[in-house]
């Protein structure tokens, strides 16, 4: 019996040094677009063929359309940016009739990211997507810092995470990604809960909640007051969380957080990610993925590896620290 996954995956050349397995998915390479940073592929088509990506993850879809948050919605910070978009999206009906038909023609795996106010909403959307051809996987956004209800509410609670993932698991046959929030004291219990609930892949991480203040005006720089921090500023934080979760879980991890170039990708793989998503990089350099793919092929060749996945989880932490005697 072929699983829906295999049907939906485009063929990959077995010999390709970048070919990547991500749980049940076989991807052309380990580079995915991060949700909310690639739209549904239409606008990005002016710069890059979605087919060059290992997979594309669409902007979050909710059951009903959402208008999003008040303006201003973006604000630059040191080597990063804050956003408070608030999940503006056309809703599931419009997505299925207006966007998914075009996405089905992309020569890559299409991952549909969904967000709900309640477990029921996630389940309803997953049931609906299960019947739609062309959905390679779903990603559960249980980590958005910019909405009043739903989203991150689930992702900060291991029990709620496990229940939600399990209920979606029961009604969706394809692969499930759980996208987790870094805004927790310890990500490991949440990651383990998503795995226990039946997630196939962990997407780590969504943005860090933060804020920016215009002291002269005595006002926040974002209409939503707080927002999600992304970009190179968060890469060290994201790397640590990927590393921690990869040691605690068996399911593969997609690393996310400030990836701008090939070295960043390789750092995440060594730390334990099987693949990565690029988000903010698209805003700055919309052609980053084809450029990074070239550099990755070169790096794999230079390192004498057969396949890029040989690097996954190869971080060496066994070196004994040098301790110094003294009254320090």
């Amino acid at each position: 019996m072929t699983t829906p996954t295999e049907v939906h995956s485009p063929p990959t050349e077995r010999q390709s040094p970048l070919a990547t397995r991500l749980g049940p998915l076989r991807l052309r390479n380990p580079l995915l677009s991060a949700s909310g940073c690639f739209g549904y592929g239409e606008e990005m088509g002016a710069f890059v063929d979605p087919g060059v990506y290992g997979a594309i993850v669409g902007k979050s879809i909710s059951r009903l359309p959402r208008n999003g948050n008040p303006i201003p919605r973006v604000c630059e910070t040191a080597s990063g940016m804050l956003n408070s978009i608030g999940l503006q999206n056309p809703g599931m009906d419009a997505f299925i009739s207006n966007y998914l038909p075009r996405m089905r023609h992309y020569d890559t795996v299409v991952v549909v990211n969904i967000v709900g106010d309640s477990i029921d909403e996630y389940v309803q959307m997953a049931e609906r997507l299960d019947r739609e051809p062309g959905v390679g996987a779903i990603e559960l956004n249980i980590s958005c810092p910019n909405c009043a209800v739903g989203g991150m509410e689930f992702g900060i609670d291991p029990q709620a995470t496990e229940t939600l993932v399990r209920k979606v698991r029961d009604c969706f046959r394809g692969p499930i990604f759980a996208k987790l929030t870094p805004n927790v004291t310890d990500i490991v219990p949440v990651a383990k809960a998503a795995e226990a609930g039946g997630a196939d892949v962990l997407s780590l991480i969504n943005t860090f909640v933060g804020m920016s203040v215009d002291w002269r005006k005595r006002r926040p720089r974002l209409g939503g007051v707080t927002g999600g921090l992304s970009g190179p500023a968060i890469k060290p934080l994201a790397l640590r969380l990927v590393w921690l979760a990869s040691r605690a879980c068996r399911i593969p991890i997609v690393g996310i957080g400030g990836i701008m170039n090939a070295d960043d990708v390789l750092e995440f793989l060594v730390a334990g990610a099987s693949a990565v998503q690029l988000g903010t990089a698209h805003f700055v350099e919309p052609r980053s993925v084809p450029r990074i793919l070239e550099a990755l092929e070169q790096a794999v060749q230079d390192e004498g590896l057969d396949n890029i996945s040989d690097l996954v989880g190869t971080l060496k932490t066994d070196k004994k620290p040098i301790t110094i005697q003294g009254d320090g």
């Binding site: 909310g36 940073c37 690639f38 739209g39 606008e43 990005m44 002016a46 710069f47 902007k59 999003g68 303006i71 919605r73 973006v74 956003n83 978009i85 503006q88 698209h282 805003f283 919309p286």
Partner: peptide
Amino acid sequence: FGVCFGCV
């Protein structure tokens, strides 16, 4: 270029 919805 229309992807981020930051400038609405």
